[in-house]
Amino acid sequence: MKKKPSIFTYLFLICGCVLIIFPMYLAVITAFKPTEELTKSIFAFPSSFYLGNFMEVIEKSGFLNSVINTVFVTVVSCVGVILVVPLVSYAIARNMDKKRYYKYLYYFLLIGIFVPFQVKMMPLVQVMSNFNMLNVPGIAVVYIASAVCEGVFLYVAFIHGVPGELEESAYMDGAGTLFTYWKIIFPLLKPMTATVLIMDGLWFWNDFFLPLLALNKTPDNYTLTLFIYNFKSQTTVNYSLIFAGLLLAMLPIMVLYVFLQKQIMGGLVNGAVKG
């Protein structure tokens, strides 16, 4: 049904690609160079693909541990977000025009978006310390709480665009609310769920400040970002090692994206089948 994209579209896209790939190219080739080669020129293609940097990072004690911590934090927080946030968003989106409670709740949850991290940084660490939550599971709970506001914002906007007929007929048939939500609404939210997962997943994976303030007591608690920053302050100008570490750290999130972007396009595929 749609027009084929013109040649200009492709040119535009390719220009953008160049702008994106050049810095990436630097990061990748740097990681594959031994240090001596790097100090000569940072732009030259590596004379051979030297894997020593990657091996050195992986062999460093604490790397594997930090990967496990980060995977744990990211997965638990993401699952938590997906359990909690669409649920509240659905309730708000369907009731905010009728009942004041939901409308006010919506605005109450939105306030969080506007508050810069600095306001709550220190008190948050105090609260976490009072609850004995300065550890890996503790930080996951805080992440779920912190993801509520932006998540609700995105989901509510999306649910407004989802037609209500399907669920109405389910209610007519006597289905329970939770059942209707889970079986009918939640699958319809797929594109937004994928988006929120990518957004929050990236955030939890790459976050620096909260882990720094909450998980500094023992290296056993370090997340990947803390590990890499710590590593960076120990090896300062050794870019090859740092970039090798950074590339290793971003691989999993790239995989997550590759799987999730299909979900974002879910609607498109359905439409195409219908058409």
Binding site: V84, V88, Y90, R94, I111, G112, V115, P123, A145, C149
Partner: peptide, 30 residues
């Protein structure tokens, strides 16, 4: 009633988490 109760319950987990780990620290900050 079942529906509105469920709808209300849907909002509880997120709101509680948000109040304890988001709004409360902000109030202390303020």
């Amino acid at each position: 009633t079942e529906k509105s109760l469920s709808m209300f319950l849907f909002t509880v987990p997120a709101t509680v988490l948000y109040c304890v780990f988001f709004i409360y620290p902000i109030i202390i900050g303020i």
